[in-house]
C-alpha cells in the first residue's frame, strides 16, 4: 500500500524503494525534508513542546495523488512513507505510526550490524523484507508489481 519508502540521514538518501520508477517521488521526498526539519526544530527550540513522546510527525502534506507521512528518530534519521490517496483513505494515524515503528526497529537492527558502515546505503536483506511487507500489506493487488520492481538506491545531496 505504501508506494514509496525512504530513509535519510541529514539530506542524504540512504534508502529508497518505490513501486514505480517515477522521478516524482524523489521530488516529493526532497520537498518534505524541509518540512521535517522545520517540525523537529519547532520541537527542540526552547519553550517548544519538547516533551512530546512521539517521533511520528504526522501527515506532512497531501499532493494530488499522494499523501506523505514523516517520522524522525531521536538521532535525526528521517523516515518518509508515501501513500496513494485512494488506498490511504482507510488508514488511521495509529496504523501509520505502527508502520513507522517497525521501519525504525528494522533500521536499528540494520545499523547495529558491525559490518554496516554508518551513513552508507542500507543493503540488509532483513531490512528489505520489512520494507516489502510494508509495501504489500493490505494491498495484494499491487504486491506482485512491488515485488518485481528492483530496488533503486541512489545517493543524492541537495544543495
Amino acid at each position: 500500500m505504501a508506494c514509496c519508502v525512504a530513509v535519510l540521514i541529514k539530506e542524504n538518501l540512504i534508502y529508497l524503494r518505490r513501486s514505480t520508477e517515477e522521478l516524482k517521488f524523489l521530488f516529493l521526498i526532497h520537498a518534505s525534508i524541509d518540512i521535517l526539519d522545520d517540525k523537529v526544530n519547532q520541537l527542540t527550540k526552547p519553550g517548544g513542546d519538547r516533551d512530546t513522546k512521539d517521533f511520528y510527525l504526522g501527515l506532512l502534506y497531501p499532493v494530488e495523488e499522494y499523501k506523505i507521512y514523516g517520522y524522525v528518530s531521536p538521532t535525526r534519521v528521517k523516515f518518509i512513507l508515501i501513500f496513494e490517496h485512494s488506498t490511504s483513505s482507510s488508514l488511521k494515524d495509529s496504523d501509520i505510526k505502527l508502520l513507522f515503528q517497525r521501519l525504525h526497529q528494522a533500521y536499528i537492527d540494520c545499523v547495529s550490524n558491525p559490518f554496516y558502515e554508518p551513513n552508507t546505503q542500507l543493503k540488509s536483506k532483513r531490512f528489505e523484507q520489512v520494507v516489502t511487507s510494508l509495501m504489500v500489506q493490505q494491498d495484494s493487488m499491487t504486491s506482485s508489481m512491488t515485488l518485481s520492481t528492483p530496488t533503486v538506491a541512489i545517493n543524492t545531496t541537495t544543495t
Binding site: P46, R50, F55, V72, S73, P74, T75, Y107, I108, P118
Partner: peptide, 17 residues
C-alpha cells in the same frame, strides 16, 4: 556508541538540544 545510541534512544522518545 553509534549503534548503541541509536538503539537506546528509541526507548525515551524525546528530541533534545
Amino acid at each position: 556508541g553509534y549503534s548503541l545510541s541509536e538503539r537506546l534512544s528509541k526507548e525515551s522518545p524525546r528530541y533534545r538540544d
